[in-house]
Amino acid sequence: MSGASRRASGPGRLLIAVYAVFALSASARAGVQIATSFDEAPVAYLLSAFAAVVYIVATVALARPGATARRVALAAVSVELIGVLTVGTITAFDPGDFPDDTVWSLYGRGYGFIPLVLPVLGLLWLRRTWTTEDRA
């Protein structure tokens, strides 16, 4: 089995499904926030939109075969981890900068901390499905 199809099968199937749920909900949330009340908290809402894009890229890249997709997935999941740690830490100490919630606020507490666990599982899964083909 190629490294590509391995990524989207087995536990990867479940992982990508959870990523897709976050891609969908983060996009919907960001879309509504920006469309209806952008002026209230532009930084938080732009961050929501950024998170949505990261989830979309991660979902698609994890699902697609090939070495390029793997690299994109690795980058997206890494950005996701950095994002949730950074935003989580900032909001934990000084929520003033983000008056409205984003998916990464307080390490994703509003989403059962799944946003914190997901990138770790994503990185572990990318490492486990790493094959010689991916070196190409």
């Binding site: 087995g10 199937r13 479940l14 990508i16 499904a17």
Partner: peptide, 14 residues
Amino acid sequence: FWALAEKSRWGTSV
């Protein structure tokens, strides 16, 4: 749609 292509317990988990 995503579950049915995976013929294992992981498909059901979706």
